[in-house]
Design a binder for these strands. Structure first.
Length: 813
RNA sequence: GCCGCGGUGGCGGAACUGGUAUACGCGCGGGACUCAAAAUCCCGUGCCUGCAAGGGCUUGAGGGUUCGAUUCCCUCCCGCGGCACCA
């Protein structure tokens, strides 16, 4: 059997590399590069083939970089806090710390079996007190700098997970993790003031080398919109005095509405408040109160999902009060409707049926006037009775602003509003502050103590970490065990010393992962989060590889952390990840997403057992472009193993031989592999390795130099086999002690190339010629070719296009 | 609806800056070795036509620019991912 024994050689070299600390980074500035993969959540399912894909890609990059003399930081750790381990504890009673320890061991074993050259000396786990002490320290830093605060707000509550969630963790109105429909609750919670950075986070996106998809998702999520807050004022009846002797007064009120289309201000026919708007109670007249209360109760019962998905159906109630138009003084009726969201803008909008689709639908239902104030440009027809005209145009029916374009009018009306003191230009964001507290156990405790007398008191940094108590009860009540742990929450106030209660909420696990890349630079430091010198040395991250599912979660939060730490003087950069790439999903052999229930999950352990680590590495890199989704194909693996066996067998025929053609091919291979690895085009790199291997294999005697160069090029991809062959060839040192081959353009030059000969752009022949042959000679040779003569004979040559070394095109009439 | 990405053989996929479309791998067909099979090795393999040389067609559809278009432009169709009552 002409095959190598992967079961023997792979563990052998893995052990050797471990002993030699082959992947460890050196603390030196020279040629320092930081390669980061998104650290895994150590799930019970073990390592997924998707992990293998991105880790292998980065391993190839890192191994090559080291061979080029670079000092590479390629660390690994575990995003180890989180809900699944806690839910498992509720179900089985096994402590999350034990579950997590076990799953981390499994991940570690599996990653080592893939032959990944991580710097294992820097391994971290977010659930380690030595780690989360700094997560807590960061919380305190933010707290002291007004970036962490507690507030009562309408928040997302998941009944399945029994905790609040950040906006980013609500997908289609449901919990991202357990799919339970999220309900709104008014609760006091901890927030990070990410909105303070909205503008800079938006601007910073332009500067980073990230996939356009992710960048546009972040821009969209931050959602900046520039507009005007316009005040609609009015008078309402107010009762004062003792019961029985009340008197009615006229009191002034003001409703600010936010609009991006202030050019349509003269088209307002009504105002709509969100049902939850605080002014609703105040402004509703007695005769309308019953209807308003009924509507509001009904709206409250609707989930966010229902309110946002029944887009076409608009409903509302008139509340009985009118406000004055700020420029015309006209009376404008005030309505409530659940198509207006309380937590965006001012929670109130102006209804302009002629120029807004939603307002148009609403106006039709409730017989509000459609006032055309923006006319379509000349030559364009629009039927205002049929639908709203939402594009820009020329102003009409707008007093002194008539004749202006929408753009001019936006500016002019905004100025008029401002100088009349009836509003101001404002910027609104979709981005909300980040809700970070969770009513769960398995996370980093929020380092705050509640004192009757002093209120919320931060824990002293010297008292960190606030340890998660191990000895707690996991009850299926849904309540965090921390709430009932007396030893945990009975403390004294850090300020006055009186009896106090520890905050029992923990932090969102996304807080843990927002700064882990900093810790890798100095993972064992007990005095500081990381030495500034080391952060400066390695950060920001040069290349970051991971899944696209974190587009607005981890990647946005981490950017916020970096900006905040920059402003507080802890880091000298703003953007943490200069270049980002996403690996595509690996689908099951059936083309579906791998899942337990479909039974199409491929276990890397089994592939490694049967074919070897080098085979799974090569196979996953060869499947297709890194960023594409691609189905697993078991028969494709066989082809990779055949290729590796071929390389192995070729070694037996190595000897002394001169072979100019092979030299040329090897040079081209050096060029192609080097370029392709940098461009993350591993599939085409491997294709070139195959072409080269096939050529080597064909030779009776394989020139030693060519073969050794080939093995060096193969090494980052198939490190075990390359190392085995390298030693088998008589070398004492590691294959990775080699420097990366240098490309020599002179040697790569072909003696002969196939020139395409076209007549009128159609291929009629190919001729073998020296690539340097001048046009005249190529032309003569081409015209003398039999099949070309056939198409040119008796015709006039109008033109000849010549591309040196590639083609000649004869244009005839 | 809006934003982003894509559509190439039987399959996964290649193709520099507009320059020989289908590299590489799988699969399939044929052959060698073998008592036989597996493994391995060699040859072939886009479609139509032809004994062959060759010819015609072909990168989702249609049009355009060009000596030449998978690549650039216009119109349209389909698929995937994201966002979506944000005023």
């Amino acid at each position: 059997m002409p095959s190598y024994n992967h079961l023997e050689i792979e563990p052998k070299w893995q052990k050797e590399w471990e002993t030699n600390k082959a992947g460890e980074a050196v603390e030196s500035d020279a040629d320092a590069v930081y390669h980061l993969i998104m650290f895994p959540y150590p799930s019970g399912a073990g390592l997924h083939v998707g992990h293998v894909e991105s880790y292998t890609a980065m391993d190839i990059l890192s191994r090559k970089a080291r061979m080029q003399g670079k000092n590479v930081l390629f660390p690994i750790g575990y995003d180890a806090f989180g809900l699944p381990a806690e839910n498992y504890a509720v179900k089985t009673g096994v402590h999350p710390a034990d579950t997590t320890k076990k799953t981390m061991e499994t991940f570690r074993r599996q990653m080592k079996a893939v032959g990944l050259s991580f710097d294992w000396s820097r391994e971290i786990a977010t659930c380690d007190p030595a780690y989360y002490r700094w997560t807590q320290w960061l919380f305190l830093l933010f707290y002291k700098n007004d970036l962490a605060y507690r507030a009562k707000a309408p928040v997302n509550w998941c009944d399945g997970c029994n905790t609040v969630l950040a906006n980013e963790q609500v997908v289609d109105g449901a919990c991202e993790r357990c799919k339970t429909t999220v309900v709104q609750k008014d609760l006091e919670q901890w927030f990070f003031r990410i909105t303070k950075y909205a503008d800079r986070l938006l601007a910073g996106i332009d500067a980073v080398d990230w996939p356009e998809r992710i960048k546009s998702m972040q821009r969209h999520w931050i959602g900046r919109s520039d507009g005007v807050e316009v005040e609609f004022r009015g008078l309402r009846a107010e009762m004062t005095g003792e019961k029985g002797t009340e008197r009615v007064h006229e009191a002034e009120f003001s409703i600010p509405v936010f609009t991006t289309r202030v050019d349509t201000l003269f088209g307002v026919s009504y105002i709509v408040l969100a049902p939850e708007h605080p002014l609703v109670d105040v402004l509703t007249t007695e005769e309308n109160r019953d209807a308003v209360v009924a509507y509001r109760d009904q709206a409250r019962k609707k989930s966010e999902l229902e309110r946002t998905q029944l887009e076409k159906d608009k409903s509302g109630v008139f509340i009985g009060t009118y406000a004055k138009h700020p420029l015309t003084g006209e009376d404008i009726p005030i309505w409530i409707s659940d198509y207006v969201l309380v937590n965006y803008g001012t929670g109130a909008v102006m209804g302009v049926p002629a120029h807004d689709e939603r307002d148009f639908i609403f106006a039709q239902k409730y017989a509000q006037g459609v006032n055309e104030v923006v006319a379509p440009p000349a030559g364009m027809e629009h039927d205002f009775a049929a639908e709203a005209y939402t594009d820009d145009g020329i102003l009409v029916n707008s007093g002194e602003f008539d004749g202006m374009t929408s753009t001019e009018a936006k500016n002019a009306i905004a100025t008029a509003i401002e100088s009349a003191g009836k509003g101001k230009r404002v910027v609104n964001y979709h981005l909300r502050d980040w809700l970070v507290s969770r009513q769960r156990y398995w996370g980093a405790p929020i380092p705050i103590v509640w004192c009757e007398a002093c209120g919320a008191q931060p824990v002293e940094p010297k008292d960190l970490p606030v340890l998660l108590p191990r000895d707690v009860d996991f009850m299926p009540t849904g309540r965090s065990p921390l709430v009932d742990s007396v030893s945990f929450h009975d403390v004294s106030c850090p300020k006055c010393g009186a009896g106090a209660r520890r905050e029992s909420d923990t932090m969102d696990t996304f807080v843990d992962s927002s700064w882990y890349y900093l810790r890798y630079t100095d993972p064992h430091n007990d005095d500081v989060l990381a030495e500034p010198e080391r952060i400066r040395r390695w950060c920001p991250v040069d290349l970051y590889l991971g899944g696209a599912e974190h587009a607005v979660l981890h990647l946005l939060y981490s950017r916020f952390f970096a900006y905040a730490l920059h402003d507080l003087g802890y880091v000298d950069f703003e953007e943490p990840f200069l270049k980002l790439r996403n690996q595509g999903l690996i689908l099951g052999p059936d083309g579906e997403k791998m899942s337990k229930s479909l039974g199409n999950v491929v276990n890397p352990d089994e592939v490694i057992e049967q074919y070897g680590a080098d085979t799974i590495r090569l196979y996953e890199m060869f499947m297709g472009p890194l960023e594409d989704a691609k189905p697993w194909d078991t028969s494709g693996i066989v082809g990779i193993r055949r290729f590796l066996d071929k390389v192995w067998m070729t070694r037996e025929r190595v000897g002394d031989a001169k072979d100019a053609e092979l030299t040329c091919l090897v040079q081209k291979t050096i060029k192609k592999i080097s370029d392709d690895i940098e461009a993350l085009k591993f599939n085409t790199a491997i294709s070139q390795l195959m072409i080269c291997a096939n050529a080597l294999h064909e030779r009776e005697v394989v020139p030693r130099g060519a073969y050794e160069t080939f093995v060096t090029l193969l090494a980052p991809f198939a490190p075990h086999l390359a190392e085995e062959i390298w030693h088998d060839l008589g070398h004492a040192e590691s294959a990775f002690a080699q420097s990366w081959p240098e490309y020599d353009a002179e040697l790569a030059k072909d003696a002969l190339v196939a020139i395409a000969v076209q007549v009128n752009g159609r291929l009629r022949a190919t001729i073998e010629l020296s690539p340097d042959l001048p046009e005249k000679d190529v032309r003569d040779r081409a015209l003398a070719t039999e099949n070309v003569e056939k198409f040119t004979d008796g015709k006039e040559i109008a033109k000849v296009i010549f591309i040196q070394g590639r083609l000649i095109n004869i244009v005839v009439k």
